[in-house]
Design a binder for these strands. Structure first.
Length: 924
RNA sequence: GGGCGGAUAGCUCAGCUGGUUAGAGCACCAGCCUUACAAGCUGGGGGUCCACGGUUCGAACCCGUGUCCGCCCA
């Protein structure tokens, strides 16, 4: 097969997804007896497009789900989207505005029809992007928060909570977005630091002509709604004023001067104005002191009828007007610049107003306590564990949750009012339908508001599985789900609420583990945002480097650190890895001639005795492979994605490509010149081993890099003889495991490596090969430093320090020929090796190595040895000092001391030997 | 202001329970088109592990203080 020397991801990535999907590879089976493994996707919102956070989050989910699926679990990844009440409504309203229309001119029904149209047209953009990334979601179970089933879940929850006394309606101070015309939950308000102003205003004190109460404020227009002035009761400056009244300017209202502990004596003048209807602190103070709450704003942010002459002014225009008027009256003491935090709507970034209105709330305290306990007693584990502190702190400081939104797009609140003002909340679907009918007939009126989108998100882990139908097969099979993977910035938005709802409604936690994936920032560590213009588009990266490379990069970044400074350059390195994988595979494909199913079946037996006769490099690579499988299993189990991918990277590139493949070449090529049965057998064993390792690595890597692995794996099978998989042999060999894997249609449905890594770990082979590696490294090092190009064949002699080492070297002389250009290689015991005319000298594990060189290199060799002696002398001194320190030898563990002694002994020997060599050279 | 996390090579990051001569990739330097791969191969240079104290025979790692950066909350 002719393959390009470079891996080109585009065609591969386009090819496999539809094949997998059409073959039903993504689907889970609710009736399976295999152990369930379920992840529900954090539903992206329908107005969203894929950003780096999504890319990371979904790569990790896909890696886990593909891993568990291969490992034999009944793996289900439930996909879906959320309706994003405010965001979606905003998008459609903007386009209506552009057409000179509005939702109000359309009316509720027609408007909703438009939104649905918009969602049908644009709502699956992000879903398609997830598919482009390779996400193996079960699309037959795709959900949308406004689906009939999920809507029923929302209605059921509302009734349940209402009946349980956990939902109530009342007039309270809430966060109000004047642009969206809706209330917001506390955590939907984002705060930014701005340079604002602090206005010091004078309120004339009644009965004390010429004296003023000077209050400082950042929002002067709210003074129209002031109903008191407050001082700290312990503030001696103002004690005498407590109980007096001031005359509120502009509106001429007589309001009291009260004392309250909450007043900060250091802030401003130490006197504050109290505006209960427009400030959270003042609201509380107002309740404590029974103050009147005077609302001065209209829902769209204009001054209302309570604002006297300022009625009708927009809030910022009113601010200017109020300030100008006070200045004119000489009531503005001073204006300072003042840093302040401004709360903004998380969807439209308009400054939020604290605003009193009639809303629905969820009582949080009774829900928070069990949710806290579930994490405390380990029914839900957080990874990294430290995140529990955020969770606890949020739960502990929780205020009731404002759930009604003055929007049309969403779940309309299932509460109905009759003419007497009674509230009716249906308990059943039948009651609900009846009330809807009554509402149409005008007998009842349904609450016009909708529920917070997060209200439906909180139900997602079970609503997607069929709840409230307790008999749902999916619910029975997959709830509680296995793990939730999410970004930590929505820990409150929904992790906590899902736990609360899961516990309250189903008496069970919604998931056993929560893994918080890191936040992806730009290369300078700054959070990515559209407004900053530092956002990286994952689709661009996929096009440039390939999806697998991007996925690999994201996994490599997903360490315990909760912050990723994403550097695009990293993708390049892992793109190169994909290319390496590709080219190693090409090499293997072109060297499989003559390999049979029997050859493969016999390869890599689990029985160590059966492996004893195998070449060192094969025993070694199997041991390395076994370590890698073990490392990957452990890493994925512990959500250490970076460790998993780096283990594969190092194994494949450094062990397999750099050494094992190179070492098999002589066996592979040997058969072409030598038709003997022995040579053929050697060649076939090499071929089989290459297939075993490549095939196994592809399976290990598949969860992270699904496309390239599927491509190569299929190409590998196609390269093998016809009927290969059908003859899949059984038996305790990795060759048989690979052959069996090939009976799967796809790699994605092939089994995860299940052999016991322990049985393939071969410490003796590893130690032996490390000796050879060190020797070859020493030779290459000398060649490099002595400017001996690869074209020059070297004459090498080695002197072993002892008989076992000599035997080890002699057993595998092919190793040296394979890895460096040799003319002659001689080896013997120390003393038995004849000294060459002139040679550079090196030592590796006691083995003396001579690389013959022309005499004129003597100068360079002296320099090289001097450097080496200096290095060794330094080490010897350091270790000597350590070992002559009595407190070290007395207090450190014996094993540590012994290790250091041995080290010193070896170093001392090397030092002395090299010193002698140097002396000899100098004497010439 | 409170909490959490981070600070290790020019850059991006590993370094798990203290016992290393502190690692990788990229970048850099030198040499190689060695019949899988120049997106490659081989070798090399490069770090008072933020600072200062402390614990310890021994600290990148543990404790304290400070500085800077990031995130969250008020």
């Amino acid at each position: 097969m002719e393959l390009s020397t470079r891996y080109e991801p585009q065609a591969t990535e386009a090819k496999w997804y539809p094949l997998w999907n059409d073959a039903g590879c993504f689907g889970a089976d609710a009736n399976s007896s295999r152990p369930p493994y379920c992840i529900v996707i954090p539903p992206p919102n329908i107005t969203g497009i894929l950003h780096m956070g999504h890319a990371l989050n979904n790569t990790l989910q896909d890696a886990l789900i593909r891993w568990r699926r291969m490992a034999g679990d009944n793996a289900l990844w439930v996909p879906g989207t959320d309706h994003a009440g405010i965001a979606t409504q905003n998008v459609v309203e903007r386009s209506l505005l552009a057409q000179g229309s509005s939702r109000h001119s359309l009316g509720r029904e027609a408007f909703l029809e438009q939104v649905w149209q918009w969602r049908d047209k644009h709502g699956d953009i992000i879903v398609n992007q997830l598919k482009r990334m390779g996400c193996s979601c079960d699309w037959t179970r795709e959900r949308f928060t406004l689906d009939e089933g999920l809507t029923r879940a929302v209605r059921t929850t509302f009734s349940r909570l209402y009946r349980d006394g956990l939902i109530y309606r009342g007039n309270y101070l809430v966060n109000w977005c004047v642009r969206c015309g809706t209330t917001l939950a506390d955590d939907e308000v984002e705060y930014t630091d701005k340079q604002g102003k602090l206005w010091h205003m004078r309120y004339p004190i009644e009965g004390l002509p010429g004296e003023f109460a000077v209050v400082a404020t950042t929002r002067p227009e709210t003074m129209l709604g002031d109903t008191a002035v407050a001082v700290n009761p312990a503030d001696d400056r103002y004690k005498h004023l407590i109980g007096r009244h001031v005359l509120l300017p502009l509106v001429n209202r007589r309001i009291p001067i009260i004392a309250d502990d909450f007043v900060d004596r250091e802030f401003g003048t130490g006197m504050v104005k109290i505006t209960p209807a427009h400030d959270p602190n003042d609201y509380q103070a107002g309740k404590r002191h029974g103050l009147e709450e005077i609302n001065v704003l209209t829902p769209d942010g204009h001054i209302n009828e309570n604002g006297a002459a300022f009625e009708g002014l927009e809030r910022y225009a009113a601010r200017k007007a109020v300030v100008a008027e006070l200045e004119k009256l000489g009531l503005m003491e001073k204006i300072e610049s003042h840093p302040q935090r401004v709360g903004e709507c998380y969807r439209c970034h308009t400054a939020v107003e604290p605003y009193i209105s009639l809303q629905w709330f969820v009582k949080m305290a009774p829900l928070a306590a069990p949710a806290r306990k579930a994490v405390e007693d380990g029914r839900v584990h957080f990874h990294p564990e430290g995140r529990v502190n955020d969770y606890y702190r949020w739960l502990d400081g929780l205020r009731d949750w404002a759930i009604s939104r003055q929007l049309w797009w969403g779940h309309q609140i299932p509460a109905f009012y009759d003419d007497e003002g009674n509230v009716h909340v249906p308990d059943t679907d039948e009651e609900y339908e009846q009330m809807r009918a009554d509402a149409r007939d005008g007998k009842l009126r349904q609450d016009p508001d909708v529920l917070d989108t997060w209200f439906s998100s909180a139900l997602w882990p079970f609503s997607t599985l069929g709840w409230p139908d307790e008999q749902s097969a999916d619910l029975k099979a997959f709830y509680p789900t296995s793990v939730l993977i999410t970004a930590k910035d929505i820990i409150f938005f929904w992790v906590a609420r899902m736990i609360m709802m899961g516990l309250h409604l189903r008496d069970e936690v919604p998931f056993h583990d929560v893994y918080f994936n890191p936040i992806v920032a730009d290369e300078h560590g700054k959070k990515m945002s559209k407004s900053k213009g530092n956002a990286i588009d994952p689709l661009t990266l996929m096009e440039e480097y390939g999806t697998d490379a991007l996925r690999f990069t994201l996994c490599a970044y997903a360490s315990r650190d909760q912050h990723i400074a994403f550097n695009v350059k990293e993708c390049e390195g892992y793109r190169n890895f994909m290319n390496k994988l590709w080219n190693a595979s090409r090499f293997i494909f072109s060297n499989l001639e003559g390999l049979t199913a029997e050859d493969l079946a016999a390869a890599a037996p689990a029985d160590p005795a059966a492996r004893a006769a195998m070449p060192l490099e094969d025993r070694w690579i199997l041991s390395r492979y076994a370590h890698t499988v073990q490392a990957v299993n452990e890493a994925l189990t512990g959500f250490d994605f970076d460790i998993a991918v780096k283990a594969i990277y190092d194994f494949f590139w450094k062990d397999f490509c750099d050494y094992h493949i190179e070492l098999t070449k002589s066996r592979l090529y040997g058969a072409t010149n030598d038709p003997s049965p022995e040579a053929t057998a050697r060649s076939k064993s090499a071929q089989a081993m290459l297939v075993v390792i490549l095939e196994g690595t592809l399976r290990l890597l598949h969860p992270v890099c699904p496309f390239i692995t599927e491509e190569i794996w299929n190409a590998l099978r196609d390269t093998l003889p016809q009927g290969f998989a059908q003859e899949a042999p059984t038996g305790q060999t990795l060759g048989a495991e690979s052959a069996k894997a090939f009976s799967s249609t796809f790699l994605m449905t092939a089994p995860w490596p299940t052999f016991d890594p322990q049985s393939y770990i071969d410490e003796a082979a590893e130690t032996q090969l490390e000796l050879l590696q060190e020797v070859i490294y020493t030779i290459r090092n000398i060649r490099g430093e002595m400017k001996m190009g690869p074209g020059i064949a070297a004459t090498i002699r080695m002197a072993a320090p002892d008989q076992p080492t000599l035997e080890a070297l002699r057993r595998d002389t092919a190793f040296f020929h394979a890895l460096t250009n040799l003319k002659t290689l001689e080896m013997d015991m120390e003393g038995a090796v004849s000294s060459p005319a002139f040679a550079a000298t090196g030592m590796a594990r006691g083995v003396m190595i001579y690389v013959e060189l022309p005499e004129e290199m003597k100068q360079q060799e002296c320099q090289r040895l001097e450097k080496e002696v200096a290095r060794l002398a330094g080490e010897v001194t350091r270790l000597g000092a350590k070992l002559s320190n009595e407190s070290f030898t007395a207090k450190a563990p014996a094993a540590v001391v012994e290790k250091e002694r041995e080290k010193l002994f070896t170093l001392q020997e090397e030092h002395d030997t090299i010193t002698k060599k140097l002396a000899l050279l100098g004497n010439d």
